[in-house]
Design a protein around this nucleic acid. Structure first.
Lengths: 209, 209
DNA sequence: CAGAACTTACTACACAGTAAGTAACTCCGG
DNA sequence: CCGGAGTTACTTACTGTGTAGTAAGTTCTG
């Protein structure tokens, strides 16, 4: 053991700001061109350095992608700062608000659409991230459903898990259609409609088929 | 103008079979690795030729992709051979059956998931294809809704367009989650649940939020 | 003066597309 | 039925480009 283990001297604030700019640039490039077709040089150009400079900070392209995703999650949590993650019916209201917000930030939406779908391919570096992400979101939505049922004195039906997955699914799927034809698909309205439809079917199911 | 325009001598059946094998191989490769990361050599290997051989048949990689998508659409129509494309409520029953069928063919599903999401990136060769595809499907689903409303003596509400987009969206979105964790997401059951929920909300809307 | 933050320059590879050549097949006139 | 011209279905070999990663050097900073 060497006793002179250097303390891993934390980076200067200027450097942190630089890395943040890289992360944002990477999000933009991965969003518009995809991960595989998104070259490091394009990211580096946006922050005025060479692609080797980017690699100096993040080690590899794979690593950069993972940090981009992690960074984005952290920012989202920071937006809710102080506020707890909403529970019960408020979670669903929050999802509707998110859809509304997303209609104003096509870049971010496109990045998630492209990267999440790309992640199902063989050996994709973001695969674990998205597996975990959907698992977490499904659990949260499922819990919210169970809470709502409890509040209304209903036994939570076994459809809650399907419903939880469906709500995430419909939001994702609408994003694809919206990105392809923004004028033809109203992201916010359609999301709100579908979420309400699914909730209603959980709380009081009806057969129509 | 040259009067010696040779009659474009139609290809031998053996050649057609070969091209079909290439299209299937391309679907597999584009599905597992995506379009940009799916090399022609891998496709060529599967049919025992070189990548130049594939280019001989299809001219370019972009062209190959478009023919793959067109071929797949034609096969689907052929499956319905004789039968008309279902109308009204039968369309929705058909969609549920499709989801059930899709749970048995992950390869095809993965290809559509990956390619449709990839298509929203800048200058992607399949963009027009998917724009057109979703436009057509939304129209068909919308028409089916209006027919069902008519049959039941209801005025079709203006939610039908949102509902049509939502049904396609939920099917697509569930596929992503299912591909990432097949054991955790029941594609068929969740699709059926969501489709029924959305239909119910069109035919007899309720507010829960 | 040690390490951080880069740059330049290079390596190595993956990949689409092209050119030129070859073998097999098809069609047509005799 | 036959033989050669033209066409199809490829192969091999090459080109060019895009790109991630590495190594070594330079400047700046605490």
């Amino acid at each position: 053991m060497n006793s002179t283990t250097r303390p891993p001297r934390r980076p200067r604030p200027e450097t942190l700001a630089r890395r943040e700019r890289i992360l944002k640039a990477a999000m933009a490039t991965f969003g518009t061109r995809g991960y595989h077709k998104g070259p490091l040089t394009e990211i580096a150009d946006q922050v005025g350095m060479t692609h080797a400079g980017v690699l100096h900070h993040f080690g590899s392209k794979d690593q950069l992608l993972l940090e981009v995703l992690r960074y984005r999650d952290e920012s989202d949590v920071k937006d809710l700062e102080g506020q707890h993650i909403p529970d019960g019916i408020d979670l669903f209201r929050h999802l509707v608000k998110t859809a509304l917000l997303n209609a104003q930030r096509a870049g971010l939406v496109q990045a998630y659409v492209v990267l999440s779908a790309e992640s199902v391919t063989e050996g994709h570096p973001a695969r674990d991230f998205f597996v975990d992400r959907y698992r977490t979101l499904r659990r949260e939505a499922g819990d919210a459903f169970r809470l709502v049922c409890e509040e209304r004195g209903i036994d939570a039906p076994e459809t809650v898990d399907r419903a939880a997955a469906s709500i995430l699914a419909v939001m994702d799927g609408l994003q694809v259609q919206w990105l392809l034809e923004p004028e033809k698909v109203d992201l916010a309205e359609a999301s709100a409609f579908a979420i309400e439809a699914i909730m209603a079917q959980v709380l009081d199911p009806r057969e129509v088929l």
